[in-house]
Design a protein around this nucleic acid. Structure first.
Length: 419
RNA sequence: GGAGAGAUGGCUGAGCGGUUGAAAGCACCGGUCUUGAAAACCGGCAAAGGGGCAACUCUUUCCUGGGUUCGAAUCCCAGUCUCUCCGCCA
């Protein structure tokens, strides 16, 4: 969320930056509301001041006047509250501004590749898709999931279930032991205010699964990513700069409605309502966001290096970034069956955007209270990593070579084959 | 499901109708002392918002929302959340 005080200084520049994100927001309305709001605040405060003085004087002859002021105040306060609400509603729906490093563009076609790593495998046969391979092995069962639950779910079985578990453990171990992240096993549900804090609400309610614990209780949501719950660890906190950076990692199921993607990736487990993801979150001093983003992205690519999977790193253009991000790198893994790269991680700096929603601040070295920077990144999406291993490590007979680094996590299994 | 207790500044925790924005302690910052550090002592230290170029100043805020009152952290009502005990269950 943006600070209206900052916007007020220069509506024009703010407007131009927002426009870069291919979003149309009319700021003239905001500007007018802001002026009205401040006018009412001034009126309100002078009346309150008068009341206060009467009360202090304890002069009974003025008590009647004080009562009259109360009546006047009632209306002003109500009007002011309404306007403030309207302002907050507008602000809550404005995305973060793009960082100056971010290339201008309309959509994913304008993203720019900045790194290409690993060897794309060459097959002397036509490589199969992950779902063909998995179904032939009888270790991915989409039909069964359709029966028990519905579309966009899957049963993962036997050695592939083990592989999925091994991937989670391997990624967590790497981030904890080599990358200084603290492991967390968090709740998989989040309150409304938590979802607001990271920017999932109010604008993207349609993508979320809502849960009712009790009829009377607050709304709760299944987390669409551990980013939500890990970032909100510091909600409503004033930290000391000595506590920063804070780095958290968790492997959790993620739940998404995928409302806007009917007909997209319907085959296989690329796009599911439920999937495992290892997520990294950093809380940093706000001027260190961009450095931390590089670090975090390297933590993610390191996993792919160790798994010996071919990938590329892409910087998202202004039009393709998520709501809360100021700068995002996507990491895309090579999928032979599709003959293209697919997203396997997304690392974003959110500058102070989420911190301002969550009220996360810290005392800097001058003891000034300032908003913190937050970052999040997948390290990596476990389901899609599983897909990438199936496809890139497949043999002609449909068996799968287990990446060397994972073998200790899988009873030293070298090849996954049927039965 | 039954019975209680609570929600106050970065943290712990007093206050229970009128200089209380809020005691005290911890943490933090500055100073004295010390070769240096620690200890001790002295001083400082909330946030949000409005006005002002600024020094500064005003308003709000003791869980949230109503109410009583000239005046509420303090009294009344409603709600949310947290904790403890018993029961039940993983």
């Amino acid at each position: 969320m943006h600070n209206l005080k900052e916007i007020r200084k220069d509506y024009k520049t703010f407007n131009e930056l927002i426009r870069k994100r291919s979003i149309n927001i009319d700021l003239t309305n905001l500007q007018k509301l802001d002026e009205d709001n401040r006018g009412l605040i001034q009126k309100k405060e002078s009346l309150e001041n008068k009341k206060k003085e009467i009360s202090k004087s304890k002069d009974e002859s003025l008590f009647k006047r004080s009562k009259e002021i109360s009546v006047e105040l009632d209306k002003i306060v109500k009007d002011q509250k309404d306007i403030k609400l309207e302002i907050d509603n507008i602000l809550a729906n404005i995305p973060n501004l793009p960082h100056k490093d971010v290339p201008y563009g309309k959509d994913e076609k304008d993203n720019i590749e900045i790194l290409n790593a690993g060897k794309i495998p060459i097959f002397d046969f036509k490589p199969k898709s992950h779902y063909e391979l998995g179904e032939n092995l009888k270790m991915l069962d989409f039909d069964l999931a359709t029966k028990t639950t519905g579309s966009r779910f899957v049963f993962v079985k036997k050695e592939l279930a083990l592989l999925e578990r091994a991937l989670s453990n391997f990624m967590l171990d790497t981030h904890v032991n080599e990358n200084e992240y603290q492991e967390i096993s968090p709740p998989l549900m989040a309150s409304e205010s938590t979802m607001f804090g990271t920017g999932q609400l109010p604008k993207f309610e349609n993508d979320q699964f809502e849960i009712k614990l009790e009829d009377s209780s607050d709304r709760k949501f299944l987390i669409p990513t551990a980013e939500v719950i890990l970032t909100n660890i510091v909600k409503d906190k004033i930290l000391d700069c000595k506590e920063l950076p804070m780095r958290f990692v968790a492997s959790t199921p993620c739940f998404r409605k995928e409302a806007g993607s009917y007909g997209k990736d319907t085959k296989g487990m690329i796009r599911q309502h439920q999937f495992y993801k290892v997520e990294m979150v950093s809380i940093v001093e706000n001027q260190k966001c961009i450095d931390e983003l590089e670090r975090m992205t390297n933590c993610a690519t390191k996993i792919l290096d160790k798994l010996e999977l071919p990938y590329r790193k892409v910087i998202l253009c202004t039009g393709d970034m998520g709501f809360s991000a100021e700068k995002t790198y996507d990491i895309e893994v090579w999928l032979p069956s599709e003959n293209k790269y697919r997203e396997i991680s997304s690392c974003s700096s959110c500058s102070t955007f989420q911190a301002q929603r969550m009220m996360t601040r810290y005392k800097d070295e001058n003891k000034k209270t300032v908003f913190a920077g937050t970052l999040n990144g997948s390290g990596l999406a476990v389901g899609r990593t599983l897909i990438a291993i199936l496809e890139n490590n497949q043999n002609k007979d449909g068996t799968i070579n287990v990446p060397k680094i994972l073998r200790p996590y899988m009873n030293n299994l070298e090849v996954i084959s049927a039965n």
